[in-house]
Every structure is written in C-alpha cells, then in structure tokens.
Design a protein around this nucleic acid. Sequence first.
DNA 1: TTCATGCTTCGATGGTAGCCGAAGCATTCC
DNA 2: GGAATGCTTCGGCTACCATCGAAGCATGAA
Lengths: 232, 232
Amino acid sequence: MKSGPDIALVASLVGDPARANMLTALMNGRALTASELAQEAGITPQTASSHLAKLETGGLVEPEKQGRHRYYRLTDDDVASVLEGLAGLAARTGHMRVRTGPKDPALRRARICYDHLAGDLGVQMLDSLRIRNLIRQKKQDIELTAEGERFLAKHLQISRGMLTHPRRPVCKACLDWSERRHHLAGTLGAAMMQRFAELKWAARDTTPGSRVVNFTRTGEKQFAALFGSDAG
Amino acid sequence: MKSGPDIALVASLVGDPARANMLTALMNGRALTASELAQEAGITPQTASSHLAKLETGGLVEPEKQGRHRYYRLTDDDVASVLEGLAGLAARTGHMRVRTGPKDPALRRARICYDHLAGDLGVQMLDSLRIRNLIRQKKQDIELTAEGERFLAKHLQISRGMLTHPRRPVCKACLDWSERRHHLAGTLGAAMMQRFAELKWAARDTTPGSRVVNFTRTGEKQFAALFGSDAG
DNA sequence: TTCATGCTTCGATGGTAGCCGAAGCATTCC
DNA sequence: GGAATGCTTCGGCTACCATCGAAGCATGAA
C-alpha cells in the first residue's frame, strides 16, 4: 500500500530505551564492546546481544570482531546526524533523559559528535568559517572555498588532499541538539577535531562514555583567536 | 547519570507504524484532519486520536481547530528534516514499507489524494497538461494558461470562476508517492476529479476507507482521449 | 429543538517485544 | 589439557501498548 522507506522500522530501533542508550554511548565515535554497551544500557549481556543484532540488521551499527570481543560502532556519521536531529526534537520539548547533571554545561559548551566538534564552540566555529567566506553553505551542503583551503593549510596544517574520502563528503552540516543550529561534520570536521587534540588544545573527557570535550587554557585562546567572534 | 535529550521518547513516537504513516502523510506540508490521518494509517478514529495526542505532546505535530474538524500539521521543518533523515537511513538498507495487497495495483493506478486524482493516471494527466501548454509549471507552482482555460471549458465544462477559493490555490503540484512524481492538486485538481465522477468516468471504490478510484470502460477511453500519451 | 458529523475518553483484549536464567559456542589464558 | 571470559541462542515470563467497541462531548446542519 504505502511505498517509500520504512521509517517506522528504523525509528523503532532507536525508540527502545536500552538501544537508545547504546547508540548515545556510541555517539562519541569510539567503538565499544557488547559488554560495555550492555552496562551502558543497564541490561544483561544476553539482552544486549539481542538488541545489537537488531541494530546491526537495521544498519545503524557495525560490528568488528577482535579476539573474543565484539566491538560496535555507528555505521557512519549519517546515523550520528539523525541521532542528533532526534536529540534536537527531544530537547525543545524539555524531555531530558535524566535531570541535568553537573557535566551538563560542559556538554553544551563542547562535545564530541561522532568524530567532530559539537556544542556551543562547534556552532561558533561553523559560523566563523561561514562569515569569513572560508566555506560556502547552501542549506545542508557546504563547500570549501579557495580562501578556506589556504586558511586551513596555514593555521591548522590541514591540506585538501587529506580530506578526500571515497564515501564521505568533505563538509557537511550537522544539526546541533543543544544549540539548534548547525555545526561542521564531514572529513573536514573530523580532521579539525583531530588537529585540536594533536595540538593539545582540547581533549576528550577521561570518564568513560563521556562526550565532553575539555579545552585547555591555551587551547581556548588559540581557538578564540581563530574562530572567536572578533577574530579574522 | 545520563544527560542529554531523551531520544528514545521521540524515536518511539515515530517507531509505531501507524504514527509513522501519519507523519509521512503530513510530509507534504499540508494539514490533514484526524479522520484523514486515521484513514491514511489504516486505523479507526479512536486509535488515531490516541496516537495524535501522543504526537502532539511529543511536539511532532500541531493541531488547529477549525469548526468540528481538527487539522494536524508537522510542527515545523525540523521535524520534516528528521523524518527525511530517518527515511534516508531506511532507504539504504533496502527496507521499504511495501504492504502488498490485492488492491495494490489498482491503488497505484488511480486513487484519491485528499480530493484529487493521484497515482499513475494522475501523474499522466499532469504530464499531458504540461506538454500541451495548458498549464505552466515552475517546480511546485502551477498556473493555468489561456489555452488551458479554453480547454477546460470546452471538454470538461469547468470555468475559471468555479476555481477561485479564498484559502486554496487553483493549481498545485502534489508529490505522488507511488510514482514519485507530481500530480495535480488545488481547486482545479479537485474540480476535475469531481467532474470525472459526475460524468461517470470514474467512481471511488465502495469499500469504506479505500482510496482506490475505479474508471469505467468508457471513462477510461474518454480520459485517454483527453490525456493519453497520443492525445492532443 | 433534533439529528448528523467529527473527535475524544473509557474499558477490555490481545499480540508483541523486552527481559533474564540456563545452556551452548568461541576464544584466550594458564 | 582445563578454566575463564565474551558473546550468543533458547525458552518462558511479564509488561506494555496498539487496537477497537461503546459511549460521551462538541460543533454544525436541518
């Protein structure tokens, strides 16, 4: 009767609390074992196994066998993007998973979204790039300008060649759930986040499962110098 | 301990097939009544009422009372965007929602879309009108040409004056889910469908809740003469 | 008023899916 | 080899929720 993609099937996968917790845990881009995901969701391994099998056939996660462990990761950042979108819808109705904890402000300020920077600083960065014509954005589509290439090479030692990937766009807009605006995804978003880490500007929170990104004092300065509202 | 929006709550709303069908029906941006949505989802009004209440508190749809009808529309395009994202994920796993039934071929051929003709014949009709310059189409916007007015008056006894409506456009392109192309909506689309019925060219299927439109033998001939690929 | 239509609430039912205990493979370590 | 770990499969239990019939409001028509 109806045709078109079966969104109910995918949505119901995310719709279960246990699976949703697993997926959210995977949003930091790292692969986790089945046991870790079980613990994250607060269920027994056998139940988790069932859930993970469903997520796998649904194409949301991908397994990687390693010894007697089975590591799972999100299939790609498209999945992450949809999850962030859902988070955005949930956020504005005020429905949070649990009461806002002490880490919440930090999470809103800077966090990992799959493999790129999200939160206040992530949005701010994309804004800055756009305003200074380093990228050109048409709704969801973003492309790097010649100026942008020079900027990246000069300040972050990122060359255009590093960013090419057979199945992933260089730039992509990802909707930020805490800011309700876009931040930068794609290989460029990933490369920049990686560079921030390498330069010791920022580091992921050490507590396992956390998505918080902590900026160092100097990192924050450097970041502000490049992408601050009064930069350029 | 967990923070962040409760994505499971929102996702589970979309995860139910009936609700997903309703939401997909609302994807064209138009508001539909509760009954229409019930019919779209293939459920009874009382079940639909329950679903719509949930969708409303979940912030996915917004009601608008009008007389004794209750029109629902998607809250905004953020919701639509997330639904598209989910559709994208579902599409690449090859999971389509195809409920094959005995009526299915008939439904694909000709059916009611709100109050106008949809399906293969609906798309064919719009194509024919466009090719013969009876209408002028710019993406979603369609306008009737002078030739078109003459054509309608001559062959279907439809005058321009019958089509004016305070809140509804004369012509509009409506995306056809079975053909994935546009068919004709608006007051003209409705008037033409009504005329087909009056002329006994076609009639809606008698089974309640069905959207199938059955063409009579002579009706099919007349329709083909006007809008067939070799017509004009 | 009386009737019809559109929608909602209530109550009961049934199917489905999440959940865990127990057992079964697979891999690694001793 | 045997033991331990990580994960999966199987079976049965339970809880939830979609579903519909019947009845109750609200609005509009006659």
